[in-house]
Design a protein around this nucleic acid. Structure first.
Lengths: 154, 154
DNA sequence: CGGGGGTGGTTCGAATTCGAACTACACGGC
DNA sequence: GCCGTGTAGTTCGAATTCGAACCACCCCCG
């Protein structure tokens, strides 16, 4: 496999993936900024916290989930802390650990931004597909994610 | 549709898309940096030029294709020009126009970087899917892209 | 208990990106 | 021909991101 090019279908899939990813992330970011003063990375961060037990996560764990560097996460959490949407808390049991905690205000901000965000995701991706296509998309990309995660720290 | 949340499958598809996109772009960037001194955005830029007739494109057109801002493109083209991989050329017929042209060196850089890049794309996405899944992925994401492009300048 | 290697988080400087403002040129109507 | 509106590309300052260096702390092994 040391030199195989991509055939017609493979190329179409890959380029479509790349373009859609670029376009959709940009569109989401635009919408969030206009609509609630959040950026796409910030929205994703808040979402992960909201889904976590106790609405809190270790910094390192959060960085991993967001596919961001530790230093990048430090910056964003600081921004969100200034805005009052996130709070830092000591982690009991390891004095090095810091928990990022979603505040009441953060939850509200998420609640305000969610409908518009969802609308964009639906209009430009989800609602364009039927159930079979949706299931295939979920399966295939979950497999890709698993592979990427598994070979990440190798 | 003013408040519909995502069901199980929809959520799985969307989160997998987001994660895979983040992970894959990061992995590609790592590989390209180690392997040839290019970044992922630079590789994509050179690829678009290589595929264009005459290996050249108008700046505005290129920015649109890459889903980047015009100022961002100015920066990257300048970087690549310093490195000798791209050259700027006047556009005959509109004195405002500038063409970005792939140089011989740029073509060689692309040629050197391509095998490693392809390997990453295959290992983490393409080769994980069978022909049907691949075709579905291409179809669905092409449709999403078309929708995003169509509603872009609305 | 006392290092030594490893992990968690931050700080720092460099690179990249964006949008707004700006300059130069194009095009249509008067 | 000349002006007003619009487009192409660049410049500028601000925001975001990364990796490397750093400090504090954890855990294991002798």
């Amino acid at each position: 496999m040391t030199e195989r090019w991509l055939d017609e279908t493979e190329m179409r899939a890959w380029v479509a993936f790349l373009d859609t990813s670029n376009l959709l992330l940009r569109r989401i970011d635009q919408q969030l900024r206009e609509d609630g003063g959040l950026t796409q990375p910030q929205y994703e961060l808040l979402t992960r916290l909201a889904e976590a037990p106790g609405q809190r996560m270790r910094m390192a764990e959060l960085a991993l989930a967001l596919v961001a560097s530790r230093s990048g996460l430090t910056y964003q959490v600081s921004q969100l802390e200034k805005a009052g949407l996130v709070r830092r808390e000591a982690y009991t049991g390891d004095d090095r650990g810091i928990l990022a905690v979603l505040t009441e205000q953060g939850e509200q901000a998420l609640h305000r931004a969610a409908p518009g965000h969802l609308r964009v995701v639906r209009e430009n991706l989800i609602d364009l597909l039927d159930r079979d296509q949706l299931a295939t998309l979920a399966d295939t990309l979950s497999r890709a994610r698993a592979h990427l995660r598994a070979t990440g720290g190798a």
